[in-house]
């Protein structure tokens, strides 16, 4: 492998911006937990967590700038996770 001193794909300020977004979204998760949203509480928490993990994957883990194969690999992991959840849920749906 070549000693690739990887150039900064995006400026440091960009990373700081993403970090601030993550802090903000954490605040949203905490704030939402104090609001009685019935069944939507869990959905909202998972939705915000999904946005946060997407940001981490795209920017901190450089997925946005990496080769497509890496993207597909992570997609395979996420797809597997979705299938695990759906098949497990088939038990709870009918029990």
């Amino acid at each position: 492998m070549s000693e690739d001193k990887s150039e900064h794909i995006m400026p440091v300020i960009g990373y700081v911006g993403i970090w601030l977004c993550l802090i903000f979204l954490t605040g949203v998760t905490v704030a939402v937990s104090f609001v009685d949203m019935q069944n939507l509480t869990l959905f909202t928490a998972l939705f915000v967590a999904t946005i946060k993990s997407t940001l981490v994957l795209l920017y901190f883990m450089h997925l946005r700038h990496d080769q497509p194969i890496i993207f597909y690999m992570i997609l395979a992991c996420l797809g597997s996770y979705a299938v695990f959840v759906i098949l497990t849920y088939s038990d709870y749906l009918y029990r």
Partner: peptide, 16 residues
């Protein structure tokens, strides 16, 4: 995708 065939007598839903 087939893990629950270890659990047929565990009390799972019939449909599952």
């Amino acid at each position: 995708l087939v893990w629950a065939h270890h659990m047929f007598t565990s009390g799972m839903a019939d449909e599952s």
